[in-house]
Design a protein around this nucleic acid. Structure first.
Lengths: 307, 307
DNA sequence: ATAATAAATACCAAAACCGCATCAATCATC
DNA sequence: GATGATTGATGCGGTTTTGGTATTTATTAT
């Protein structure tokens, strides 16, 4: 099979014009090579595609059939070239995002919105994971990007800070401090705390503890659990108080009230990815994330500095 | 755009093996030209399709995308070649058949069955016409083949006899002759006849008149109508008798009875087509029609001699 | 009959392509 | 850490393919 795209293009031109001279002009070649390529094509197919005299050229039944096919094939190639180039630019393809449930309350939705607007043709696969699973999904190549708190990253993973927000207090509804519109952190000194475990979320654990220390006391930790969401659920049950990222206040749970605190620490979030990952969609996503971070900072939001 | 099918085949081989040497062996070429064709392909696309060191070759995201496309395109071409060849052989395509309502009682069904069995992939378009329209549909190119009685053909139309069958008598149910199992044509001498008009169906008209003359009388023609079917309907109403092709006896109409006649004339039917028609399906159909005619003759049927 | 048009053919030059030989980079092994 | 083996890239010469010009052949219009 030595049929060539050139022969297909030549054939299509001739089938369109039914005139060797005009078709050759359209192809920017002279007439003899066109005659020869068509003859070669018919020879290879073993089929007469044109019925021609020196005065008239017309398609045979087989020629009409081949014309349809050739148009489709030439178009397929053009489409394939364009879509491959789009894939290389990261405009087409699949981006797999791993995130913990907290991200779904805060950074994930606007970031996905920004990426989706910038790359409307890329497919996005969202994959909710537990905090401890996030690194593995990236290292094993099961995900392209993760949304995470800063953390001690394993070798091979990169991190880009995107957004920071203040901590706020979460209290049981009937609590005496819940009547105040804003709370000084020091007022929580005697309360039982519910926090994330130091082992799996050291940075965030440290942040809460540090915030308390800023205000002169060591919190009494009564319970530890992995998800911010669960902390709020436990607070609503009256089991203690906590300091959580402000985004969690979107969670309107009966029994839990959120209050801003004076002089809060900031919780940073960012995106994580494997440095060896060469998915072009990732590059596009990182550009979006950078833009998003810059925008959040420009809007007066408290964004962490670039690394 | 100078991308080549060779480059697609080379690319597919390399994407399959991920090894230049092995892919080259599979393609029955040496390794250097493969390297160069792949480089040329990437150059033309402006996209890296492989991430390669001297020790390892792997597809990029764009390369994986292009691989799918290339497989599809190569397959499309192979399919197109095969189907074009099938079209040229008359195995694929459309055959448009014009026929009169009488043919639907006799030659059409078995002939279509034979063709359909021999060329199961060809599309058959059946088009019922009035006898006087048949020639025009063929000459104007609106049909490929017609089923007809022999007739004086216009220039450009060809005719092939396929099948012949005896005339039989059709009588009103209460008719005195209807009691006899077989009728001598001479017994119909006094009856009023219903025939086809001499103007539009001269051959068949002549056949009926001639059959009467064979038996020594000139029939008294009371009514003329264009379709055999209508003749039987009028006979059933008691308006006269007629001689019709035996196939019409399949028409089980209350009021009409069919009886074989002694020493009948034979009614020939055949297929008609435009000599300039180059639809390959027509060639296949004509071969079927010839076989069908020979078979009918071999089975002891009364088939007209070949022209 | 003659001129004009259009496709096929002959012949030559340029480009593309392949194979051999070789180079360069990486990996395994001692 | 040096050495050999493996593998992809590169240089070069010869062959094949392709395109252009000139010419031939066949058909149609005048």
């Amino acid at each position: 099979m030595t049929i060539n795209f050139r022969q297909l293009r030549y054939f299509v031109a001739l089938a369109d014009t039914l005139h060797f001279g005009q078709a050759a002009a359209r192809l920017h070649i002279s007439q003899p090579p066109l005659s020869r390529q068509i003859a070669a094509l018919e020879e290879e197919l073993g089929v007469a595609l044109f019925k021609r005299s020196t005065r008239q050229v017309e398609l045979t039944a087989a020629g009409r059939h081949f014309h349809e096919q050739a148009l489709r094939i030439v178009d397929s190639l053009n489409t394939a070239v364009r879509s491959t180039q789009a894939t290389a630019r990261g405009e087409l393809g699949v981006l797999r995002v791993s995130f913990t449930s907290f991200a779904a309350w805060s950074l994930l939705p606007p970031l996905i919105r920004a990426y989706s607007d910038a790359y409307p043709q890329a497919d996005i696969q969202l994959n909710e994971v537990l905090p401890r699973e996030l690194n593995d999904t990236l290292i094993s190549g099961n995900a392209d990007i993760g949304i995470a708190f800063p953390w001690q990253r394993p070798p091979g993973l990169e991190y880009l800070p995107v957004y920071a927000e203040p901590l706020c207090a979460v209290l049981p509804q009937g609590h005496r401090l819940a009547r105040k519109p804003e709370i000084a952190v020091g007022e929580l000194a005697a309360e039982p705390f519910i926090t994330l475990p130091a082992a799996t979320a050291p940075a965030l654990h440290e942040l809460v503890i540090g915030c308390c220390r800023d205000h002169g006391f060591e919190p009494h930790i009564r319970l530890e659990t992995h998800l911010q969401q669960t902390i709020v659920n436990l607070v609503a049950e009256g089991l203690g108080v906590s300091l959580v990222p402000q985004s969690m206040s979107k969670m309107q749970l009966p029994g839990a009230v959120f209050r801003p605190v004076s002089a809060p620490r900031l919780v940073e979030q960012g995106v994580v990815w494997a440095g060896s990952n060469d998915n072009p969609c990732l590059t596009g996503f990182l550009a979006c994330a950078r833009d998003f971070g810059a925008l959040a900072q420009a809007r007066g939001g408290a964004t962490a500095a670039q690394p």
